[in-house]
C-alpha cells in the first residue's frame, strides 16, 4: 500500500464482506486504498477514527441503518450497491420455521431455508411419499403461483432496487439468469455475478487508474475457494421452474453443496427436506413423528 493510501469502508452483510475481501486482493485497488469491511449487524469493531478518516464509503443498500457510533465524513464519496437476491427461481422458498442448529455437524441447522408448499402439505398431515409426488407434477399446476407474474414482480423489485443504488445490476441479472448460474440460492450469488458487481463498483467508486479488467476480477473472486466464494449452501431449482425459464445451465441430477458438507441432487434434497420438515414439525409440536 502506498503512503497516504485512501481509506475505503465497505458496509453490509456477508456479500459485502466477500466484496471487500476481493477488493483487498486486487493490486490495482489495494495499492492505493485501505479497504475496511464494516458488518451491518452493529457488532463491527471498526474504530471511530477509521470511520472518520474514510474517503470512500461503499454502502450496501439495506434496510439496516449504518452502525450507530460511527460517523462517515460528508466529504467521503458514497457509492450505494445492492443486496444480491433472486426469488424468481425459488418461488416456494421461505425461512424454515422448524429449523434448529444441530452443532457440530449442522451449526445453522439442516435446512435453514424451507418450502411453503412442503410445509403446507406436512401441516395437512400428508405422508412423505405423497408430498414428493405432489411436489413434482408433470406440469406446473394452475393453482401454484404464476411464474410469469413472479417474473414481472421480480423485474419490478430489481428495478426499484437499482433506482436506489449507484451500482445497477438488475438488468444484468434478468438478461443472463437463463444463460448462466448467477445464484446458488435466493441470497447466495455465484462468482460470475459477484465479479460483475465488483467490476461495476470499482467503476463507480475508484479512479480510472485503479480500474481492473473483468478477467482479473473473475480470477480474484475464484481464487478464494475451490468452491464458489459464497457457494457453501445451495438450494436446488425445481425442474418445472427450470423448464419454464429455459435455464440453459440447469441439471436436475447435479449434486449441490448443502449444510453439513453434504452434496445433494434436487431429488435427494427434496426427499430429505420433506422428511426433515415432517420430523422437526412433529418435534416442535411435541409429537413423535411416525
Amino acid at each position: 500500500m502506498t503512503p497516504g493510501a485512501r481509506s475505503v469502508l465497505v458496509y453490509g452483510d456477508a456479500q459485502a464482506e466477500a466484496i471487500a475481501l476481493v477488493l483487498q486482493s486486487l493490486p490495482a485497488v489495494a495499492e492505493r486504498n485501505r479497504i475496511v469491511y464494516v458488518r451491518d449487524d452493529g457488532t463491527s469493531d471498526v474504530a471511530a477514527e477509521t470511520a472518520e478518516a474514510c474517503d470512500r464509503f461503499f454502502e450496501q443498500r439495506s434496510s439496516k441503518p449504518f452502525n450507530p457510533g460511527l460517523t462517515i465524513p460528508k466529504k467521503a464519496k458514497r457509492v450505494r450497491f445492492p443486496v444480491l437476491e433472486l426469488h424468481l427461481l425459488w418461488p416456494f422458498c421461505c425461512p424454515n420455521p422448524f429449523n434448529v442448529p444441530e452443532p457440530p455437524e449442522f451449526p445453522v441447522g439442516r435446512f435453514p431455508c424451507a418450502d411453503t408448499f412442503i410445509i403446507n402439505c406436512a401441516e395437512q398431515g400428508m405422508p412423505a411419499p405423497l408430498i414428493r409426488r405432489r411436489y413434482v407434477p408433470e406440469e406446473w399446476p394452475a393453482v401454484w403461483p404464476s411464474l410469469d407474474r413472479s417474473f414481472q414482480m421480480e423485474s419490478a423489485r430489481l428495478s426499484a432496487q437499482d433506482a436506489q443504488s449507484d451500482v445497477k445490476i438488475g438488468s444484468f441479472i434478468l438478461k443472463y439468469f437463463r444463460k448462466a448460474r448467477l445464484f446458488w440460492a435466493v441470497n447466495v450469488p455465484a462468482n460470475r455475478l459477484l465479479a460483475e458487481v465488483i467490476y461495476r463498483l470499482i467503476d463507480a467508486g475508484f479512479d480510472e487508474t485503479e480500474r481492473c479488467a473483468r478477467e482479473d476480477i473473475e480470477a480474484a473472486v475464484a481464487g478464494f475457494s475451490p468452491r464458489e466464494l459464497l457457494g457453501g449452501v445451495s438450494n436446488p431449482v425445481h425442474p418445472l421452474v427450470a423448464e419454464h425459464f429455459a435455464l440453459e445451465w440447469y441439471d436436475r441430477d447435479e449434486a449441490l453443496a448443502c449444510p453439513g458438507d453434504r452434496e445433494l441432487t434436487f431429488d435427494q434434497y427434496t426427499a430429505e427436506l420433506i422428511d426433515d420438515i415432517i420430523r422437526t414439525r412433529g418435534r416442535a409440536a411435541g409429537k413423535t413423528p411416525a
Binding site: H87, P95, T116, P145, R149, S150
Partner: peptide, 13 residues
C-alpha cells in the same frame, strides 16, 4: 419478522 423485499413479493402475489 421475516417481511423483507423477497417475502414482500410473496405477500403481493
Amino acid at each position: 419478522e421475516g417481511w423483507d423485499s423477497l417475502s414482500h413479493a410473496v405477500l403481493i402475489m
